[in-house]
């Protein structure tokens, strides 16, 4: 492995010192967001735990509602509540504190599936394609990611393959300036695969470490647009063997159960390797990623917590689960 590989491992779940630091970053940012929202937020799960000591039917019902309120979805919620009901009825569980621990463990087990290993960049250029439906924050996330990789000492190129949306390229240019990375672009309306081709050629010539590809937002129900993604992937793999090394699906934290369908369809068309959960600085909990992780076993890599360039932090399952309880 070359030396740059060390510095650019994406380590969402490991516990060494560097990550502990990041963790406090995650924590303080989430805290800050939560404090800001305290009066707006209602805190259903906590209130159950403070007011009730023993588990009864209505506790479980309230619990169910709290999980559903976090967008975890009726199916996944039913799965979790069923487990708790089971244990409670077998008298293994008598205190509400135990219920909380059980839910926490259950959620962690789902979020820390076998796929949630760190991604190691083994090849130059490491190609990352960013996909998602419209308006989830793809371009903003790319700006933040480019900045992060740059700060990690990597050379980054960003490929402006959203040639469809008005002013998407201009928006990316501004992020490129902020992060100090080069944007590979062509005219509005160009075939996105052609831009990918260009960017990879240029990255190879310049020996860049990372290429991040921006794509146009597309609803997963649009068949032709999903095929366009497949084509971009093919072109990438032809230019750089093994590319794309990562396909990150951006999910907006306010998304409801449709997020699962998005993940299914994008995985089918573009083999999603990870998720970035954006806009977690609002009141939405982003619980749909639990349902996604449960069904598709896709790890969450990063979360977006604001509009500033450093508002992107590695995902930490424990912090995330605790924020669901806040």
């Amino acid at each position: 492995m070359r030396p740059y590989v060390e510095s650019c491992m994406i380590l969402p779940f490991t516990k060494d010192k560097a990550v502990e630091d990041k963790k406090s970053g995650f924590f303080s940012k989430l805290r800050a967001a939560v404090t800001k929202t305290r009066d707006v937020l209602n805190t259903p799960i906590e209130s159950i735990f403070t007011f009730k000591k023993e588990i009864d039917k209505s506790t479980l019902e309230e619990l169910e509602m709290a999980l559903i309120g976090a967008d975890i979805g009726p199916a996944t919620t039913a799965h979790i509540v069923e487990k708790i009901r089971d244990q409670a009825s077998r008298q293994q569980l008598t205190e509400v504190g135990q219920v909380k621990a059980l839910i926490r463990n259950e959620l962690l087990a789902i979020l820390q599936g076998e796929n949630s290993r760190p991604v190691v960049m083994q090849q130059k250029p490491h190609v990352i394609i960013i996909v998602g439906v419209n308006g989830v924050g793809k371009t903003t996330t790319i700006g933040k990611l480019a900045n992060k990789f740059k700060n990690d000492g990597l050379s980054v190129k960003v490929c402006a393959a959203d040639t469809f949306r008005a002013a998407a390229i201009e928006q990316l240019e501004i992020w490129g300036q902020r992060a100090g990375v080069e944007i590979i672009r062509q005219k509005h309306g160009t075939d996105p695969s052609a831009v990918v081709f260009d960017a990879l050629q240029s990255a190879r010539a310049a020996q860049s470490d990372v290429v991040i590809v921006d794509t146009a937002g597309r609803l997963h129900t649009k068949h032709n647009l999903m095929s366009e993604l497949e084509k971009m992937k093919r072109v990438a793999s032809r230019e750089v063997p093994g590319a794309p090394h990562e396909v990150l699906l951006i999910i907006d934290a306010v998304t409801g159960q449709n997020g699962v369908q998005q993940a299914r369809e994008f995985t089918k068309a573009a083999a999603v390797t990870g998720i970035v959960l954006t806009k977690l600085d609002g009141t939405a909990k982003g619980g749909v990623v639990v349902a996604i992780a449960k069904e598709l076993n896709i790890p969450i890599q990063y979360v977006g917590v604001g509009e500033k360039i450093d508002d992107l932090i590695p995902f930490n399952a424990e912090e995330f689960v605790d924020s669901l309880f806040d």
């Binding site: 306010v254 998304t255 009141t283 939405a284 909990k285």
Partner: peptide, 15 residues
């Protein structure tokens, strides 16, 4: 409002 919005819709719309 985005049709894909989940449970949070009530909070943002209300506010």
């Amino acid at each position: 409002a985005d049709a894909m919005t989940g449970q949070d819709a009530v909070k943002s719309a209300h506010e």
